[in-house]
Design a protein around this nucleic acid. Sequence first.
RNA 1: GCCCGCCUGGCGGAAUGGUAGACGCAGCGGACUUAAAAUCCGCAGCCGGUAACGGCGUGGGGGUUCAAGUCCCCCGGUGGGCACCA
Length: 868
Amino acid sequence: MSGVVEQAVDGPRYDFRSAEPKWQAAWDARGCFKAQDVPTSGRKKYYVLEMFPYPSGKIHMGHVRNYTLGDVVARYKRACGFDVMHPMGWDAFGLPAENAARERGVHPAKWTWENIANMRAELQRMGLSLDWAREFATCDPSYYGHQQKLFLDFLQAGLVERQESWVNWDPVDGTVLANEQVIDGRGWRSGALVEKRKLSTWVFRITKFAPALLSALDGLDRWPERVRLMQANWIGRSEGARVRFPMAGTEGEVEVFTTRPDTLFGMSFIAVAPEHPLAAAAAAANPAAAEFVAECRRMGTSEAVIETAEKRGIDTGFRVAHPFIPGATFPVWIANFVLMEYGTGAIFGCPAHDQRDLDFARKYALPVTPVVLPTGEAAASFSVADKAFDGDGVIINSGFLDGLSAPKAAKSAAIARLEEIGAGQGVVNWRLRDWGVSRQRYWGCPIPIIHCEACGVVPVPDDQLPLELPQDVTFDRPGNPLDHHPTWKHVNCPKCGAAARRETDTFDTFVDSSWYFARFCSPGDKAPVLRAAVDHWLPVDQYIGGIEHAILHLLYSRFFTRAMKATGHVSVEEPFAGLFTQGMVTHESYKSADGAWLYPEEIEFGADGTAVQRQTGAPVTVGRVEAMSKSKRNTVDPGAIIARFGADTARWFILSDNPPERDMQWTESGVLGAYRFTQRLFRLVEALGDAGRGAEPETFSVAARRLRRATHRTIIGVTQALEDFAFNVAVARIYEFSNAIAEAERNGDDDGMAWARREALEMAARLVAPMMPHLAEEAFALMGGSGLVAELSWPIGDAALAAAETVTIAVQVMGKLRGTVETAPDAGEAATVAMAEAHPNVAAGLVGKRIVKRIYVPGRIVNFVVAG
RNA sequence: GCCCGCCUGGCGGAAUGGUAGACGCAGCGGACUUAAAAUCCGCAGCCGGUAACGGCGUGGGGGUUCAAGUCCCCCGGUGGGCACCA
């Protein structure tokens, strides 16, 4: 492995170390990648955006992949004549900065800004075609001040409100925990048992837009289908009914939401969430119920945890009447699998037709009454054992619903009756909840609100924005440093002047990333956005990022855009017209004999292919290929790769390995292969020398024509591959092309060959430019090209020159390949079929058979269907 | 538990329903070299056969079709998301 690199040090043909900074400076000097806020060029706009990074300190391979993909698109579209905007910034608020402050005593601001400086330098070494003049960080008051203004506008428009919500509370650290910070019911840092706690929080009313966010998904035809599906499921529209059950013996009622009102006669019990008021009432009266509710409270708020936990419950002792069955009463249970946030926080249990209800009923010996009969079953013999029936069928045991088909007809009949007798109504329920944005953290955008005893919630006046974070905070005790600050929260009410209290919560960092794409259009403007700029540039034409953001970030941004439209900031409703989601970067993992994870650079492979530790020669176990992570130490530092092989090699390899939407495996050998190709291409250019200058020859030899065909086929093929986001295919086409050029070189200089080679190499340089921009410039300059490849227009392939002189037709008998025949591209059906039938191997297969049918697909295939 | 994705040679992958395995990596053979590295040329799915060629083959099973990696149904394996990480 070292040989390749050492050669590069000794005397490379292509010296990326000098070339890459040189061309980066040249692009910068020409301002190649600058865009205007409100362009005057008249060219069609194209806004390319990659999800901006969190400034963790160093770029990782995921970033390299993300920004390389975006850069290929940006450079390609620019060459195609679009006016491209391609900005970069920093998603700079968030918990890691605060963790660093607690662990190492460094101020979050200092930590963040140093990380940004470091990462900016690393990104710049990648040679990305970014307009750095648009850069900003979300932790800068000149950004988040505008965000505060947007929040106040949303508040005014009724898109923000105060709500109580349940959170994971760490009683020792005195802080709210994310679900991922709750491990086996304990806080990750303190180890204390986590409790659910109710908190008063600010929410964005995203549910107001639920129908719009759902229906607009249909129009996002340049989004991956699966992302649209994930969002649709997340929004979760379901049609059903709210049903009210009067309490037996006391006042009051329980309201449930159900999607299956057709199965109401199969009801066995009611179950309420542990946070439901009835559960609280039961707990007050019954110590066992109180104990159960307390236990559920320790379970955390994660849906995955709740739904995989053992189904448990306790009878409250309350009984309800049934709206359709006079005289019947049913027990009300508290169950740990009922979610307070969904529907009404209460369900009716129909064990025969819902698996979860069935498991629960069996556990607590509650009755199971089938009310939907599967087709083909007899009512007398049908019963439910341990598998609930949730398919279609006919209603039985259900009074006025009997005989109706379930669920559809019976559902409408049940709803009609509920409405008639005033016991409920048909409703559309949404799974989507309002977006809680309050965080009890320091390193986030302050929520610009003042709480006044007399005036209530008072917005911070516009002329006091941005409301800046105080710098002098300490992290020496648990809880929110803003809350501990001696003076910051004490303020006079802007309305009445009395002593009042600032809101000390800050925004969820998803707020920061929900409108940054709009701010990029006019990053220096005094208002959150410059209307003319966003009207021109939005929506983003191509957005690129990780699939992990498929739901939250993208949905929040879609909401924000609608909210900004409602408050007059933008005209569009959808922020991202095109979306591409990339796969992860993975690597083998390595473990030493004592079980410690080892970094790839600590490993060496022996002649027999086994891995050993480089220093000691101790054996190493090669583990699974998985997502690069610091804990597994299977990371590769892009900075080191770029220093050793150059940015173009890193970019080329990351594009060549596999389709960008799939996970890719980073391998040393793959990088070396990419590096070798940079040298190979450059050698081909060097070997050309001065050959082929001058006017296009009158005639070309057969070999020269073959090369020109390869050239024009490659232009067409690479163009199509780039349009399709099939960058690995584009790379493969260029490899094929370089093989064709090398072959032509060996064929000597017959008629027109030198000219054809020059044409081929010039096109090669221009076609690799979006992927390996530095090498492209260096090669182009060496060939005597004038100007920058970055400023050239995209080449157009000549279809006539690319056309094949003969085509190969596959010949099948009964769908099995029996041979191939060469024909002229315009040979007709009769001639082609005759030639196919005459093929010796085909003829042998046809002996003694009767040809029933001859299938002919022009340019592709002849298939004989035979009998006998 | 619910939702979503993925599965093709030793490896990454290519393939408008039309010659499965392009291209690359690793491997093998050759040229060059005192030698090695680098470079260049060639071979290569698996089984059988000197070969011509034949059989098998895209996670497993079934179906549609003249023709299925591709479309449909069932099953298996594996990865991701599930609301305060970003």
